[in-house]
Write a protein that binds this DNA or RNA. Structure first.
Lengths: 190, 190
DNA sequence: CTTAGATTGTGATGTAGGTCACGTAAGTTC
DNA sequence: GAACTTACGTGACCTACATCACAATCTAAG
């Protein structure tokens, strides 16, 4: 499927744009291919773009002072990702984004998104709802962290993304769950 | 200060409305007083409104099956709160909101907010940015949970809201940090 | 084929924080 | 001002998970 069509169907779930409007909207995106392991945003970068995944899987993650990795999000097809704090506030990136698998993405610059939001009211509506959903999801995950143990969170994750199990190495799943890879290993090999 | 003025100054930080536009916007809000301890949203409710705090302090929290409380947010003056999952999706509340102190709030219905967002492009922009900031804050808190121990999170909280220390009982701070009140007590009485 | 790097399992041991139990002090209510 | 309730501290013990160490596969590059 064409990237044009993938994005169009994704947008159409939230707002109704005419074909001309969508073509104009789409003209602000560029596509790019990445290889497995390749970095898209590195800590310290100036972040100017956000990414829409067409194919493959990205991860956004934080590396702490002890070089330990914490994964905020796996971005699958039709997911958006970036270091939003850096993108919105203009500060340097503290979050990294790279490729778990080979990946195809569309990207749009922060300024083009803002321009489109201003020009087309419906587009602003779309981005408001996208963030609304992200906010609710983020609060749910926070609650799960406070409330549930690692085993419970692991089952939750697999229920939500069965594909992940055979797609990404276990130490990345551990980094998403916030446990050590050893503990994760013991969870399903008791 | 009048509630009209408090909301006006809050909104003006993000968007520019004419006086007439703001008056129209404001006409969709109603004010309400609550006593300390009073419930605003209870788990199981249908949620139709979101709340803007004028004075006092609210908390939004989750109660798990063991009757253990987890605080998502303390809402201070000029903060917004609700069960956003319930509000946006029309499902029953799973989050509770009540008053840590006596409180004055403004509230607006979900349908009036959506109507205003449609009628006034700038208003939609305001709510998009409000959620953007909330999303970034929520991700930061999630990272802090994964990365830092309870003592670190406690110091972070006090740095961010020094007022809380003398305003809310310690067991609520513990419920925000995701530790038991005993552990919190031992953190600052070593 | 061969070597180097990932990936995963598993034992031994350490620790942050939970739970239970009890005591004290400070508000509240009648 | 007595009777309750809420807030807070603290000791004893328990548990989930981290860390360290080592072995076994598996994969990819030369």
């Amino acid at each position: 499927m064409q990237s044009h069509q993938i994005l169009k169907e994704h947008i159409a779930k939230t707002i109704a744009l005419t074909d001309d409007q969508f073509d104009y909207f789409f003209s602000h995106f560029k596509s790019q291919s990445f290889k497995k392991g390749q970095a898209i945003i590195a800590s310290g970068d100036t972040v100017e773009r956000e990414y829409f995944v067409l194919d493959g899987c990205l991860k956004s993650f934080y590396i702490n002072d002890d070089q330990k990795m914490f994964i905020l999000q796996f971005a699958m097809p039709t997911w958006w990702t970036s270091d939003y704090n850096a993108l919105y506030s203009g500060v340097k990136a503290t979050i990294n984004v790279d490729c778990v698998t080979n990946a195809e993405v569309l990207y749009i610059s922060n300024s083009d998104r803002e321009k489109l939001c201003k020009e087309i009211h419906e587009v602003e509506h779309f981005f408001r709802w996208r963030t609304n959903r992200g906010y609710v999801a983020s609060q749910k995950r926070l609650l799960s962290f406070m409330n549930n143990d690692a085993k419970h969170r692991y089952e939750e994750l697999l229920a939500q993304y069965p594909a992940l199990y055979n797609m990404v190495p276990k130490h990345l799943i551990a980094a998403y769950l916030g446990v050590s890879r050893e503990t994760l290993s013991r969870l399903y090999n008791p």
